[in-house]
Design a protein around this nucleic acid. Structure first.
Lengths: 200, 200
DNA sequence: GTCTATAGGCAGATAGAC
DNA sequence: GTCTATCTGCCTATAGAC
C-alpha cells in the first residue's frame, strides 16, 4: 500500500488538516479573529510546524479561498449533473448555504468580504473571483429557467444573479447572529418565491 | 457663552471624536481590525487618553452600537415624519444604507454580525437589538403599505421585513468588496420592485 | 484630561536541532 | 516534518506625573 493510499484512508495529511481547522476558524471568527496558535492548539502541533506548511497567514488564507472555491464549483457541477428545472437548481443552491449555516459558520467569502479592507491583495482577488463565479453560474441557471419556463424575473439575468448572491449572503449573516438557521430558510424561500414562474 | 455652547459650534468633545474615528474604523476594518493605537494616531492623542474616556475596547464598542442605533432610529423617525406612501419609505430606508456604503463603509451592525462570535456579550445583545428594531419598523411600514395600497408581498409582514434587512445587508457586503455602490442600488431596486403593488 | 512610561501578553515569524 | 527556543513588534491596559 502506498503512502498516498494510506492517506486516503485515515489521514488527510497535515496540510489538509490545517486547512480544515483554519477554514472553520475563519468562517466562525473571521480572518482577523484567530491566530496560528489557535490552529496549533486544536491540532496538537506547534506554530512552527504550521509555518512549514504555510509560510504566513496570508498564504494560508489564499489557499483556503482556493480550496473553498474549488469545492463550491464541484457542488455547482453536481447540481447541474442532477438536472431538473432551473428553479430546483436555485433551491439546491440556497441549500448549499444552509448547510454551511447549520454548522454555525458564515460563507467563507462572505466573512472575508466583511474584512475585505484588511486583506492582502491576493486574498481580495480570490474573494472577488468566488463571487464572479457564483454570479456566472446563477446567470446561466436563470437563463435556462427562462427557457424551461420554471423561472421568471424582471430585469437582466445578471442583476437577478447578483440579487440572489447578495440576499443569501445577507440572510446568512443575520441568521447566524440570531443562531436561527430558520431565518435563513425563510429568506431563501421568500427570495425564490419571487423567481417562481408558477404563479406568474 | 457657555462651554457647552462653544462645543456645539466647533468642538464635539473628545469622547465624541473618539467615537467618530472608531466608528469609521469598525465599519471599514471591523472590530477586530483596528486598535486603540489607530484611533490615537488619527486624533493626535495617546492611547492612555482613550482609556480615560472608554475603559476598554469592549466599552467603546458598546457605546458605538448604542450611538449608531440612536442615529438610525432618528433617521427612521425622520422618514416617518416625511410621510408619503409606504413604498417610498422603503426606498428611503434603502437609501440610508446607500449613503453609508458610499463612504466605503459597511453597516456598523452588519460588520459586527460577521464578527459576532468574537464579540463580548453586551455588544452581541446590542447588535441583535439593532436588527430587531429595524425589523419592527419595517413591519409597521409594510403593514401601512398594505393599507395605503402601495405595497404588496406574499407571506407575513415579519418575514418580509426580515427579507429586506437581509437583502440590504448582503448587498452592502458584496457591493463594498467590489467598490461598486451601483451593485447595491441595483439589488435594492430589484428587491423593492418585488414589493411594489403598482404592477400587481 | 492628557501625558510618559511601562507592564504583561499574544501576534506572526525565524533559526536550528532532531 | 516537527520540535524548542527565541525575536520583534503590537496589543490592551494601568500607574502616576502634570
Amino acid at each position: 500500500m502506498t503512502a498516498v493510499a494510506h492517506r486516503e484512508r485515515d489521514d488527510l495529511g497535515t496540510a489538509s488538516r490545517i486547512m480544515d481547522v483554519a477554514e472553520a476558524l475563519v468562517q466562525v471568527r473571521g480572518f482577523n479573529g484567530f491566530s496560528y496558535a489557535d490552529i496549533a492548539t486544536q491540532l496538537h502541533i506547534t506554530k512552527a510546524a504550521l509555518h512549514y506548511h504555510y509560510a504566513g497567514k496570508a498564504d494560508l488564507g489564499g489557499a483556503l479561498i482556493t480550496r473553498y472555491a474549488t469545492r463550491f464549483a464541484a457542488a455547482l457541477a453536481a447540481i447541474d449533473a442532477d438536472g431538473g428545472p432551473a428553479l430546483r437548481k436555485l433551491a439546491a443552491y440556497a441549500d448549499l448555504y444552509l448547510r454551511v449555516l447549520r454548522e454555525n459558520r458564515m460563507c467563507l467569502c462572505g466573512m472575508l468580504a466583511a474584512e475585505y479592507q484588511t486583506l492582502p491583495q491576493p486574498m481580495r482577488d480570490a474573494v472577488i473571483t468566488f463571487f464572479d463565479d457564483n454570479e456566472a453560474w446563477l446567470e446561466t441557471v436563470l437563463q435556462d429557467g427562462t427557457r424551461d419556463g420554471s423561472v421568471k424575473f424582471a430585469g437582466g439575468s445578471r442583476a437577478a444573479a447578483r440579487l440572489i448572491v447578495s440576499t443569501l449572503e445577507g440572510a446568512m449573516l443575520v441568521a447566524r447572529s440570531y443562531g436561527e438557521p430558520a431565518r435563513f430558510q425563510a429568506a431563501a424561500e421568500g427570495l425564490l418565491a419571487g423567481f417562481a414562474a408558477g404563479r406568474a
